[in-house]
Nucleic acid binder design. Structure first.
Length: 545
DNA sequence: CTTATTAGCCTGTGGTTAGT
DNA sequence: ACTAACCACAGGCTAATAAG
């Protein structure tokens, strides 16, 4: 990730509400109050009355004076005027026109001003706020008098605006509360220096069943033991080595939760040579052998279990090489499909006869870093070129195996300094992809903006019975309990301070506050270094004793 | 105008050296 | 002996530039 010096993030930290509500109530009703507070807001009236001749800027100064702790945010954001109406489920945010006075404001929106402050980052973040009948769903609508409605009206999705301040934890909670098998992928860009963060992610921030990683940069002589995570097994791993230098590059690895490991194994089918990919099979049928055998006796149905085959792929950059690798992946898929023979095959490809009662279907989830920006490629129309060939190869892969790509948002953001300027250009790409041939079984999918590397984590929750899921949704312990749990399980560099820094960093990247993200990244590095130093000193002291 | 190549920027890693 | 700082290197990725 490139360093960033300019500001890309403009938080909406402060809203002014016309305080037209009588009887001393700050809010139109308790529901609004609850909804705002759940969303991480607090409120305060401007004391000492208002001078109606104040301009908005003067009002801002007044608010700054009253809220010195929020000076920085106010300086960045200015103030926006918001209107909340009794019994309404919306907050209308109006962009203020400089030079307008309080009187102008009140003429349009009613008398009195209520200041709504977004609380600091330490707001409670653990639980995803649920919609209830009593608590209205607060939506933000931005209105500006200067622009046509069609241009400026931004009606947000519940996930973005209902989300608490810590967007990442919110995203992780959505993942955790989905049923089924939770499969995630992250391009970690070296696992060696992120072992502890991975443990933290797996043990107390998520409930992932199958964690796939790419760009692990592991060496062949690196033991699995040094990368072990309590509660998880490394089921498959493939290291990449540079042909020229012999240095580690690329590499894929798949962790599987121990509870799932008894029904999971590394796929026995060999993928094509040269493809950086590993495959893990998860047995889905959980009815027990006896029942299946009885069923078989009664109906003649097959005894094979239904499988979910999870393929973790890394396609390094380089258009020509990628075409070769994508073709290899396609051939590997053919090989895998060929091996999926039903116990009673009726076709040349071993596909089950649909008339015949059989539950041994194999479904596929293929995920990884493809280094192919699906959004750019979708726009590429120049066939016959190398890029065109790449598009064609990817399309062929998708169509020949009926694969659907689930990830819609950007999975990597890069910021580059523009030549000869002090400004930075932001490039977003969708290169971490999740494919499946059974979209009906996908319970949830998406992107989690964790800041472990410049790639984000992508995931899907997969379950045959979408209503039940395979397991119950997990409820996370509180932040403190989670950290205690983590501490007891793991001997690591991460202490409470680093834990908090990581959370802050993830929040920063989610709201694209790149300056803070960079700063926190450095802080984490220093803090971890200091931890190591302290550990060594302690060990030394123990020895001398 | 499109495509391919290359330069540049960034990262992590590991070795060397100077200082404590 | 240990640590911190520095440097070189390889790899990943993008944007600029050259070539067709």
């Amino acid at each position: 990730m490139a360093r960033v010096k300019d500001k890309h993030w403009k938080p909406k930290d402060i809203f002014l509400l016309p305080n037209t509500f009588k009887n001393g109530d700050s809010y139109p009703n308790k529901g609004h109050q609850k909804a705002l507070e759940t969303g991480g807001y607090g409120s305060c009236n401007v004391e000492g009355g208002l001078d109606r001749s104040w301009t908005i800027d003067q009002l801002v100064d007044e608010v700054r004076g009253q809220f010195p702790r929020h000076e920085a945010e106010l300086a960045k954001t200015g103030i926006e005027f918001a209107q909340i109406t009794p019994n309404s489920k919306k907050i209308n945010v109006h962009v203020l026109v400089k030079g307008d006075t309080v009187a102008d404001l009140e003429k349009s929106h009613g008398s009195g001003i209520l200041v709504i402050l977004q609380k600091a980052r330490n707001a409670s973040l653990k639980t995803v706020p649920k919609q209830s009948k009593s608590t209205p769903h607060v939506k933000l609508e931005i209105k500006s008098p200067k622009k046509p409605q069609s241009q400026i009206r931004i009606k947000s999705e519940p996930t973005s605006h209902n989300a608490p301040l810590n967007q990442v934890q919110y995203e992780l909670d959505i993942l955790a509360q989905s049923g089924g098998i939770k499969i995630a992928h992250l391009n970690c860009q070296s696992l060696c220096n992120k072992k502890d963060e991975l443990k933290l992610l797996l043990l107390c921030r998520t409930d992932i069943d199958v964690m796939t990683l790419s760009e692990t940069f592991m060496r062949p002589n690196d033991s699995n033991g040094s990368f072990s995570v309590p509660g998880y097994t490394i089921l498959a791993r493939k290291d990449g080595v540079s042909k020229d230098s012999g240095r580690p590059r690329g590499g894929v690895l798949t962790y599987v939760k121990v509870s799932l490991a008894r029904s999971a194994r590394k796929c026995s089918v060999d993928l094509e040579e040269g493809l950086e990919a590993v495959c893990v099979d998860v047995e889905l049928d959980d009815d027990g052998p006896s029942k299946r055998l009885t069923d078989q006796a009664n109906s003649g149905a097959c005894v094979k279990k239904a499988l979910l085959r999870i393929v973790n792929v890394y396609v390094p950059p380089g258009t020509r090489g990628q075409i070769v690798l994508l073709k290899k992946l396609q051939r590997s898929m053919d090989i895998l499909r060929g091996a999926d023979k039903c116990c009673k095959p009726t076709s040349s490809r071993g596909i089950c006869d649909k008339k015949h009662s059989c539950s041994c279907k194999t479904s596929y989830v293929i995920l990884g870093d493809f280094n192919c920006d699906r959004k750019t490629l979708a726009e590429c129309k120049v066939m016959g070129s190398v890029m065109g060939e790449k598009v064609q190869t990817l399309d062929e892969l998708e169509s020949s195996h009926h694969l659907t790509q689930l990830i819609k948002g950007f999975t990597r953001v890069d910021l580059r300094k523009e030549r000869g300027r002090d400004t930075y250009k932001k490039t977003e790409s969708l290169i971490d992809l999740v494919y499946t041939d059974d979209t009906a079984s996908v319970i949830a999918s998406g992107v989690v903006h964790i800041g472990m590397s410049d790639h984000f984590m992508v995931y899907c929750a997969w379950g045959r019975d979408r209503k039940k899921g395979l397991r119950k949704a997990t409820r996370f312990p509180t932040q403190d309990a989670a950290f205690r749990q983590f501490s007891t399980k793991v001997n690591s560099d991460i202490d409470r301070r680093v834990y908090d820094l990581i959370r802050d960093r993830d929040s920063a990247i989610a709201r694209e506050d790149w300056d803070e993200y960079e700063r926190l990244k450095d802080d984490i590095k220093i803090a971890k270094k200091n931890n190591k130093k302290d550990q060594k000193q302690n060990e030394k002291a123990m020895k001398t004793k």
